[in-house]
Nucleic acid binder design. Structure first.
Lengths: 335, 335
DNA sequence: TTGTACGCGTTATCAA
DNA sequence: TTGATAACGCGTACAA
């Protein structure tokens, strides 16, 4: 059970009676090796159980064939039953699969975690880095870009770093949702906003604000952090502060779900007394009571696009610096 | 924006007017360097923006300070709103955080993905590998173990590989749940079982079987794959096949949730007409209608324990080959 | 088509 | 305390 001394190219070469270079060629699929020799090498590889040392390989090739997806969040948040991160991951995984590259997922919730990720990525352990869910003005994307490491962010970076990014049309989507509420006769429209250190939080609030202000309606705002817990608290506060509200736009489906329950507890009927609209269109949205009307963002597509951009960047191609994907209002029964 | 030639130890050494070895010592926090020299080196590092090349380092140290968590599942599955994988990941992340090691998450849903993970892990890109959710007789854990790479599985590996594993008491938990149903007067108890190529699926079914058989009750079984979709289908089939059933044990909370809805659609009241019990105790379980009675498994703790075991293994310690964590029946309103 | 020889950027050993 | 120097395991011009 002790670590069997692992064989190197050298030993395989000796066993096969050829040179290191030839073994290397066979292992890497070069066609310029005579068939019988290939055969001998392959047998030696199998007999010795040879596996290339990736560190040594990437030291000389300067590539690792892997790409990091960095989520500057605690695992708790990333894997709430929010489907946003998962969707992103799926999209990235699909594209990387096609490119035969390894996806390396890194969470960086704590400062120490952030440091570790910094070391790992700046240390050239990966060929490129995808960022999602950036908080505040994280300097890491800009820093990596300056180090010449390909980087793509989801969401416009809040520090003004010149890093390519992809985002969805938060403002347009929320404006459409809010207008829909207004068109349906709602006049006291509240919002449970997202965290204001993230682009998604900021812009979704802006979409709400712009629309109610333009319609001459009052602003009624409470803040959450996209989680259910925060949604519950915010909804209760809204009910206390504005007992006559007749609609709520929540900046995430999880918060909308919590709002649904809080409203139910408070004896309000949805959508009769209060209309509710969420944002994301996570899987659970179709299962809430009543099913949730929400703004769908093409999250998987976002993950795919980010990844394609990154791969292009890594290939030295010129790429668009900013891409914005459309959102869509999905009407169910809560509004 | 072109990849600035990244500085090496050599260049830092030249800039600081010392040798490579000294720079290496400072970078790695050796105390045997005179203070003024340390200062000079640090300045040179900062000026040049030096970052150690991890490939070169691990080539000589034989360590990478990172650990892989392999999930042989498609991203779709891993990140359903099932909280099981996330919990595992959180547990692992916590422990690795404490050990200052990097968690590298790898999904391996497709055969190609599995190959990639094989290459990555056997290539010594990580210091150890955690496996979760193994399907069938995956040979990879055993293979890694034979290569001398520390490995720990969650759930007993189905091939008889001598790999340390941690699992939860599926059988005991399900038996308790089933007995609870019997004690409450249920006599026509059905089950939505999990996939039979996974330990969790097999053992949860065994727990149900043993208990109903021991009580002289009939077995009523449909199979799902832990997802909601499969739960919906299975529940409908059960209703068609056994219209008089009065209880259902579902092998996952997602399937239980789907069953709740399917029963509702079929006009059955829960728990009056049909009692429902799930397995997992995911966050959503407290939010279903009615809130779900379920078997809680200490999933975060499982992730932590796995990781501690792995780290001990990597330190060359002797470890237990099998650990089983207890499960607990959480009674809410669905049964 | 095959082999020789060098270099990738570190760490570690050993002298000084 | 510091500095040469030898690995670490591999890929690849270049030569044969």
């Amino acid at each position: 059970m002790t670590a069997a001394q692992r064989p190197t190219l050298e030993e395989v070469a000796r066993q096969a009676g050829v040179s290191r270079a030839t073994v290397s060629r066979v292992v890497n699929g070069s066609t310029t090796v005579a068939e019988p020799i290939q055969e001998a090498v392959r047998r030696a590889v199998a007999e010795l159980g040879y596996v290339p040392n990736l560190a040594a390989r990437s030291l000389v090739t300067q590539r690792t064939d892997s790409v990091a997806l960095v989520l500057p969040e605690a695992a708790t948040r990333v894997f709430s039953d929010d489907q946003v991160f998962p969707g992103l991951i799926r999209g990235a995984a699909q594209e990387l699969e096609a490119a035969d590259k390894q996806l390396v997922l890194m969470l960086a919730g704590s400062p120490a975690g952030h440091d570790r990720v910094t070391r790992y990525t700046t240390g050239r352990h990966v060929d490129g880095v995808l960022f999602a869910s950036l908080h505040g003005e994280d300097p890491l994307p800009g820093r990596l870009a300056r180090l010449g490491i390909p980087v793509v962010c989801s969401g416009r970076p809040l520090d003004a770093a010149d890093v390519p990014y992809i985002d969805v049309d938060h403002i347009g989507g929320v404006a459409r949702a809010t207008r829909y509420l207004i068109d349906n006769g709602r006049r006291r429209i509240a919002t449970i906003a997202g965290p204001q250190d993230m682009v998604a939080g900021i812009e979704r609030l802006a979409g709400y604000r712009d629309t109610v202000v333009a319609a001459g309606l009052p602003q009624m705002i409470e803040y959450g952090d996209f989680t259910r817990e925060s949604g519950t608290i915010a909804m209760r506060r809204l009910l206390a502060a504005y007992p006559d509200l007749d609609a709520v736009f929540a900046a995430s489906d999880l918060m909308a779900h919590a709002a649904l329950r809080a409203l139910h507890e408070a004896g309000r009927r949805v959508p009769e007394d209060v209309a509710v609209i969420g944002f994301d269109d996570i899987e659970t949205a179709a299962y809430t009571e009543p099913p949730l009307t929400t703004v769908r963002q093409p999250i998987v597509e976002l993950g795919r696009k980010m990844t394609r951009l990154l791969l292009a960047l890594a290939d030295g191609a010129e790429v668009e610096r900013a891409v914005v994907l459309p959102t869509e209002l999905v009407i169910r029964q809560s509004a």
